[in-house]
């Protein structure tokens, strides 16, 4: 099939899947909902529980799941190509550890750091993610001009370990309930409760996706190696920088919105590659759309299976992702 047709086919298929997930998810849940009452204009919104369940509880979290899923899956694709490592995830380079440290500080030392209707936890986690990105980049470029992916990987892993131990240390000093709440944050939570956090994360995600749109062909060539890509006309350093910063931005925004939901960034890219091959012009849009659909599905399940209790969505993705990851490892070796 010619490239143009393949791309159109992919976007239509996976786009249809994502759109279907977006439309169906708000309609199902633990509480029966009458669509007629949801859109009944004669009842004021403040007195219409059906409309509020639809517009306050379900729709925002569906949108949040779509954005977080899309961002993490796309960031996973980009990080895997950048690091030339199929086992890389959006969290490999320490972005999520930085975000977790930020979120944890905000949970344990609650200060009134709300800004424009966004509460302190997402703000602190986003700041933590940016801090981690800056540190990893500085470490990876300190010795020389270029961007060594090996050093990047080592810096990321080291930072992950270091932040994790700082987190453990602060948790150790915190009281039991606070520790419990920080642990719970790590499992992801898409019940955002309003559109404000979504609108706050959206601009960063849009910037990241604008960058993603120019990357795919250069990412294809990067899989041959940096020298081979350069010899074919790729500005390798520019591509690596753009990949690193845009994928980190998408990850940071996603984690601050929904917590570090695990495994999306590795399951989705690999599933998509199994279906459509490795060409990033196909893989990147397909993974973006499939990531959205996949996380919406997981979140819908997580709010229903134990209702009225929430099953943390990260547990569900990990239950699916753990065995998948193992299968991937065994298949490769």
């Amino acid at each position: 099939m010619p490239m143009r047709r393949r791309m159109a086919f992919t976007v239509l298929t996976f786009g249809g899947l994502a759109a279907a997930a977006c439309l169906i998810a708000p309609l199902i849940g633990s509480t029966p909902l009458s669509l007629r009452r949801v859109f009944d204009g004669s009842v004021p919104f403040a007195e219409n529980p059906d409309a509020q369940i639809f517009f306050v509880a379900r729709l925002p979290r569906t949108l949040a799941a779509a954005l977080v899923g899309a961002s993490l899956a796309a960031a996973g694709v980009v990080f895997q190509a950048l690091l030339r490592n199929p086992l890389a995830t959006p969290f490999t380079l320490g972005v999520s550890a930085g975000a977790a440290l930020g979120a944890m500080l905000a949970i344990i030392f609650p200060v009134g750091l709300a800004f424009a209707g966004v509460s302190s936890v997402p703000i602190a986690s986003f700041a933590g993610a940016l801090g981690a990105v800056a540190i990893v980049y500085a470490l990876a470029t300190v010795r020389r001009q270029g961007l060594s992916t090996t050093v990047l990987l080592l810096a990321g892993i080291t930072l992950n370990a270091f932040f994790s131990s700082v987190i453990l240390f602060i948790q150790y000093l915190a009281d039991f309930t606070q520790t419990f709440r920080t642990v719970r944050w790590l499992m992801g939570d898409l019940d955002v409760g309003s559109y404000t956090p979504i609108l706050a994360a959206l601009p960063f995600m849009l910037v990241a996706f604008a960058a993603f749109s120019v990357l795919p062909r250069a990412l294809n060539l990067l899989t041959l190696g940096a020298d081979a890509a350069a010899a074919r006309g790729v500005d390798v350093l520019r591509t690596q920088r753009l990949s690193f910063f845009s994928a980190s931005l998408a990850t940071g925004a996603a984690v601050s919105l929904g917590g570090p939901v695990g495994f999306i960034g590795i399951i989705v890219p690999h599933l998509v590659r199994l279906l459509v091959g490795s060409d990033h012009r196909i893989v990147l849009p397909a993974a973006t759309l499939f990531g959205a659909a996949f996380l919406i599905a997981c979140d819908t399940a997580s709010r229903m299976v134990m209702a009225p209790m929430e099953l943390p969505v990260g547990i569900l993705t990990a239950l699916i992702g753990g065995p998948f990851f193992l299968w991937l490892l065994l298949r490769r070796s």
């Binding site: 509480t31 529980p49 719970r184 409760g193 009225p308 209790m309 943390p312």
Partner: peptide
């Protein structure tokens, strides 16, 4: 119990 906004509305 970790509850969702939906559970509270319901």
């Amino acid at each position: 119990v970790r509850v969702s906004t939906e559970a509270i509305l319901a």
